[in-house]
């Protein structure tokens, strides 16, 4: 007759109780990626300060916001989409369309206060259309927004395939306007708008039902539906938001360069996705923060700044370094989530 096993069994109420509050991983894992990005940013900045003259000038940081204002705005919209587990490939093309359309309309002497809301509305409409196709017809986001990319870029090229300068007074004034933050530290309105976009987005995600629904859908959209959440409306809304952000990015672009060009913002969707990933937003949806995206944008911007300071480096290096960073962060995310399992 065979009998049993080795080690003595623990007695007492520990058994079933153990089941009751079984912790799988520590709750703060969701902050790990964002803290890592912050750490990286600090290390990069410190090494920049240590290696290059004038790197400690506050304007280095302030200029990061100015130079990456468009990317920041677009990445904020992308963050919403990615949080729902989707993706928006059309943002770069919507930027192109917005800049060329803005320039063309202004050239045709449309009043700027009509042009501005019109192009923003157009961006939102393109986004809403994509969202509707994704939700109602269950077309994959990748494909639906790919169609949006072709459509917007095609429309932009059809309008004009050459660069169109903007001579409108309002545009020029905003473009030339400088905001003095401190002695010798100035920035442009577009940077302020980008920062505002981040603040508004962070508040929406943390404190509104819409924001929480975005996370719920990214976590499990079937469950969200059964919990009675407005899944369809929310999905369409995030693509609308992303389209709007892209159009806003396009407007900022047109202000910054006082011109419109149908190839402007080409590939921006990639940069935005990369910034989100580096900022710890999980591409599977449901996890991440706008703050992370902000840090991701700053990291990619700082890489370019450092390469500029270095001077003798091939611009190709910025792509390679961003690739390496992507690799490092993705592997890290993978390790964190694997531990969670």
């Amino acid at each position: 007759m065979t009998t049993t096993d080795m080690t003595p069994v623990t007695k007492g109420g520990e058994g079933p109780e153990l089941n009751k509050r079984r912790r799988v991983y520590k709750p703060n894992t969701k902050y790990v990626p964002i803290l890592a990005t912050l750490f990286l940013l600090i290390v990069m900045y410190s090494s920049g300060v240590a290696n290059y003259r004038n790197f400690d000038d506050p304007s280095v940081i302030v200029n990061l916001f100015r130079d990456n204002a468009v990317l920041l705005v677009v990445a904020v919209g992308m963050t919403f989409v990615i949080l729902t587990g989707g993706i928006d490939l059309s943002v770069g093309a919507v930027i192109s369309l917005t800049t060329i359309l803005t320039a063309t309309l202004l050239k045709a002497d449309w009043p700027p206060l009509v042009v501005l809301p019109a192009v923003l509305l157009l961006g939102a409409l393109i986004g809403a259309g994509q969202g509707a196709v994704i939700h109602f017809f269950k077309v994959e986001p990748f494909i639906a927004t790919l169609a949006g990319l072709f459509l917007a870029r095609g429309a932009a090229l059809t309008i004009n395939d050459e660069s169109v300068p903007i001579r409108d007074d309002m545009w020029r004034e905003i473009s030339d306007y400088r905001i003095v933050l401190a002695d010798g530290v100035v920035t442009k309105p577009i940077a302020i708008i980008a920062v505002l976009a981040v603040l508004v987005a962070a508040a929406v995600l943390a404190w509104t039902r819409f924001g929480r629904n975005v996370y719920a859908i990214g976590g499990n959209s079937d469950s969200a539906l059964l919990m009675g959440l407005p899944v369809g409306r929310t999905k369409i809304a995030v693509y609308t938001l992303s389209g709007f952000c892209a159009a806003l990015g396009g407007v900022l672009f047109s202000i910054n360069s006082t011109s419109g060009w149908a190839l402007q913002g080409n590939g921006m969707e990639l940069d935005a996705i990369a910034a989100c990933v580096i900022g710890g937003v999980l591409l599977t949806g449901g996890s991440g923060f706008v703050w992370g995206t902000l840090l991701g944008v700053l990291v990619t911007g700082l890489i370019r700044t450092i390469i500029n300071f270095q001077g003798d480096l091939n611009a190709a290096w910025s792509r390679i370094i961003i690739g390496v960073l992507l690799f490092a962060f993705i592997v890290m995310q993978r390790l964190v989530t694997r531990k969670a399992k």
């Binding site: 039902r209 929480r212 629904n213 719920a216 976590g219 469950s223 059964l226 959440l229 996890s287």
Partner: peptide, 25 residues
């Protein structure tokens, strides 16, 4: 179980009906 495991316990109970003031949860 049809809940969203990425959200907190409290949110899973209340999502869609969160107590709000001026639209803020």
């Amino acid at each position: 179980v049809n809940l969203c495991t990425n959200l907190s316990v409290a949110e899973n109970i209340f999502i869609g009906r969160e107590p709000r003031r001026f639209g803020k949860i």
